[in-house]
Structure formats: structure tokens, C-alpha cells
Design a protein around this nucleic acid. Structure first.
Lengths: 198, 198
DNA sequence: TGTACATCAGTGAACGCGCGTTCACTGATGTAC
DNA sequence: TGTACATCAGTGAACGCGCGTTCACTGATGTAC
């Protein structure tokens, strides 16, 4: 990343900058990321990004969008080839959430954390809804329903709340700060069961 | 706050700066807070804070500490005068958490959000544990126990996870972004019951 | 009660820094002929 | 195949800005006598 380029042209600077931005978001957090840092990492001048992005925020937007796509892939593979609506598959969706949050805490914060202007971006919202729909479908199947009704919405939200809370407690290191010992997998199993019980 | 002081001396600049810092943390978030802003708000020169605080971080630390104390008061009054261990009192503790998060989102983020250096501060950790102990005591009472055992730790953590997740979903505006309609109070009632069921 | 003096809270100017963004430019690339 | 030229990605210098912190200072306050 920091290596000097041989050519005047970069090849794919847009992708290079997005990757540099992603790494910096992980290292320093979405708030401490700076355009200059990303340029340094990509080995270009600080003016170069403006050929590809309108401003700093658009760079973060690109990282956020990519992240949502990776998360979509994680969810999709969590349900793939499994009988729909089982406790197992719903547990696995929860684990995928935790997996994403803990393996990419910076991008997770960017995508699921504090509301920024770009999070009102229509594409991001759309991706969010598409991801949530995967959960809704599984919950509906769990109750043997074909439509998303009140109960499905209600239970899905309860599950989201749980994995969302757990994600933040993990990445913000509250569990260690409080000297707690948590078996994540067991905890998700147990509470998924409780939250879905009829 | 912005008003010109009449006297050379401030009276209680420390408290004034803490309050200014708190307000700015609410307005802009803990990351966007600046010492200069706080000085402007308190009507003093930018050098003045260094009579009372070692650095920027210590100012945030003071706000965090005060916040934890207010939260302690909220929890204490949530349990006061109620029979211990009832679903009602545990529900009320959950509501107190949500209440704190939504009425002081900036301070909530500072206290319960991203791990910073100052959050390893012994006093902050201590306050956190003291607050958590209130919940543990109530859960123990709920199961008719006098000691904190595995089950109590386990159920308390599940409840914390839920209200923590809900708090972030609320203050990060994910609920409106996803077009969900949630009755917070009903949701906490229902899920507290589920998470405590034996 | 009045005065000398030590204390120290707050001043105002300055520091070096890194930031996001703009600008006129340059050099590599691809295409038309 | 070779050349002229349009395109545009990336340069490098500069901008104005606000930041956190330091410095020698000043003026208000409280205390000792």
C-alpha cells in the first residue's frame, strides 16, 4: 500500500483508496480517518481522491457500501443449504452478525453505528433492508408463515436487538472491562430460543 | 454560557467547563468535541482549562464520570421502594437504561460506547461495576437467591445485551431508518419476561 | 482595620500541526486517420 | 504501422482553518501581621 508506484497512473486508484480507507477505518475508527492518511497509504497526492470521490464522506460511503455487501454475503452463506426457519439457521444468522461486527469493527460501526448523513443514503438504506429481509424470511419460516406479520416483525426485532447489543459489548470491550466470562455461541443459542418461544 | 463574565475569576470554572463539555458532547458527539469549543461556551481563553484538567481527555473523563453518577441515580430511583426481584422492577431498570441512553446519547456513547483510554480509568470501571451490581442484586432476588451465581450472571448479561442493543438502535436511528414501529415499553416487558423465564 | 504580599486562576498571543479542498499543471493512454 | 491529438488521472504546491497545548504575564483574592 505504501509502496511507490512505478507508473504515473495507478491502475485502479478508486479501489486502492477504498481499501486504504477501509484499513484506516479499522485502525483508527470512522471518526479518526483522514483523507490524507488514505492518500499516504495509497501512495498518491492528496488531490488524487477528488478524481474519484466528491469529498471525504463519499470515501466512507464507499467503504460502508462494500461492507454491507460483505455482510450480505455472510448472511447468505449462513442460511445457504439449510432447512429454513430452524433454530439452527436463525442462530447462525446471529453468529454471522457477531462475526461481522468483531472481524470488522470499524466498518461495523460505520454501517450499523452512529447515524451520519451518508447513512440516509438511499442505497445504504436499501442494502440494510435487504439484509434484514433475510432474517424476516427465516423467522416467518420458523413460525410456518408465508407472510411477514406483526409477530414476525416483533421477534425479528428482538433478535436484532440482542445480537446488536452483544456486538457492541464485544467490540467496545465492555465484557472484559466488567470481568465477565461469556460463551458467545451458547449465549446466542439460549437467547435465540427464549426470544422465539411461543 | 456564552455570556461575558463580569469578574476576572470565573467562580467555578471547572464545573462550567464540565457542563460546556457535556453540552458539546451531546451536540456534536464525543469525537467532535473540541477544547476550543468548550472554552468559547464557557467564555474563557483556550489556556484556562489547563488550570483544572491535564488535557482534553481529562475533560471528557469528568463528563463520563458525572454521567455514570447520574445513571446510578436513575437506577437507584428505579428500584427504590419496590419489592426486589419482581419483573416490574427489572423492567424498570431496563427502562432506566433506555432513558439514560436516549436523553443523553452523547454521554451514553462516552460511557457505554467505544473503548477509549480513559475508559480503562479505575474510577470509571468501578462506577460501571457498581451500576451493574444493582441489576445483579435484583436478578438474584428474582430467583430467590442471596448469592450471585452462574445463572444470575448469565441472565443479567442477557438483559444488559438487550437494553444495550435497543439503546444503540434507538440513538443511531436504525429503527426509523428501517421503517420499524416499536413500542419500547411493551418490547422490554415481553423480552425481560422471556429472558428471565426458567 | 489596614497594608504587604503570596497564591494562583485566567489571559492573550503564539507554536507547530494536520486537515479537507482547490488550482493550474503534466504526462500517460487510447483513438482517429 | 505511425503520428497527431484529445482525454483525463494524478501532481505538487498552496489555501485557510481550527486544533491542542505552552508561555510569560496579570489581576483578583485571601491571609499574616
Amino acid at each position: 500500500m505504501t509502496a511507490k508506484r512505478v507508473n504515473y497512473h495507478h491502475g485502479d486508484l478508486r479501489a486502492g483508496l477504498v481499501e486504504a480507507t477501509r484499513q484506516l477505518v479499522e485502525e483508527k475508527g470512522p471518526d479518526r480517518f483522514s483523507v490524507s492518511d488514505a492518500c499516504r497509504a495509497a501512495g498518491v497526492s492528496t488531490a488524487a481522491p477528488y478524481r474519484h470521490f466528491g469529498d471525504r464522506d463519499e470515501m466512507l460511503l464507499a467503504v460502508c457500501s462494500d461492507g454491507m455487501e460483505r455482510f450480505h454475503a455472510l448472511m447468505t452463506s449462513a442460511v445457504a443449504g439449510k432447512p429454513p426457519g430452524t433454530l439452527e439457521v436463525i442462530h447462525d444468522l446471529g453468529m454471522a452478525y457477531i462475526e461481522f461486527a468483531t472481524s470488522e469493527p470499524g466498518v461495523f460501526r460505520l454501517s450499523f453505528g452512529i447515524a451520519r448523513e451518508h447513512e440516509k443514503d438511499a442505497e445504504i438504506i436499501e442494502r440494510g433492508k435487504r439484509n434484514y429481509a433475510i432474517l424476516l424470511t427465516q423467522i416467518a419460516a420458523h413460525y410456518g408463515k408465508t407472510a411477514i406479520d406483526e409477530q414476525v416483525l416483533d421477534r425479528a426485532f428482538a433478535l436484532w436487538t440482542m445480537v446488536h447489543g452483544l456486538s457492541f459489548l464485544l467490540i467496545d470491550e465492555k465484557i472484559t472491562a466488567m470481568d465477565l466470562q461469556i460463551d458467545i455461541e451458547a449465549m446466542i443459542w439460549d437467547n435465540t430460543r427464549r426470544l422465539l418461544a411461543e
